[in-house]
């Protein structure tokens, strides 16, 4: 067993795969193909903001590709 951080919203539990800068990489616990990238609000870590646009989505993907894929934030 591995200890993971879970973000629950919309009646779904998302596993935090990794956190890079303020980006959270999340996967649905019940459906691992249901994946998303969200931004943590600087003032409220429980508020998950959507990414701004395609450019920010690419930037977040690029960060992920070049960083470790840990199972939880350090």
């Amino acid at each position: 067993m591995t200890e993971v951080k879970i973000y629950s919203f919309d009646n779904k539990d998302y596993v935090l795969v990794t956190k890079i800068n303020s980006y959270l990489y999340l996967s649905n616990e019940k459906d691992p193909k249901d994946m998303m990238i969200r931004k943590e609000d600087a003032n409220d870590p429980c508020l998950l903001l959507p990414l701004e646009d395609d450019e920010e989505f690419e930037e977040a993907l690029l960060l992920l590709a070049r960083n470790k894929l840990a199972t939880q934030e350090d």
């Binding site: 993971v4 973000y7 629950s8 919309d10 969200r38 998950l48």
Partner: peptide, 9 residues
């Protein structure tokens, strides 16, 4: 924006 509850398991 989504308000999430956070826990460890």
């Amino acid at each position: 924006p989504k308000h999430a509850s956070v826990r460890r398991k």
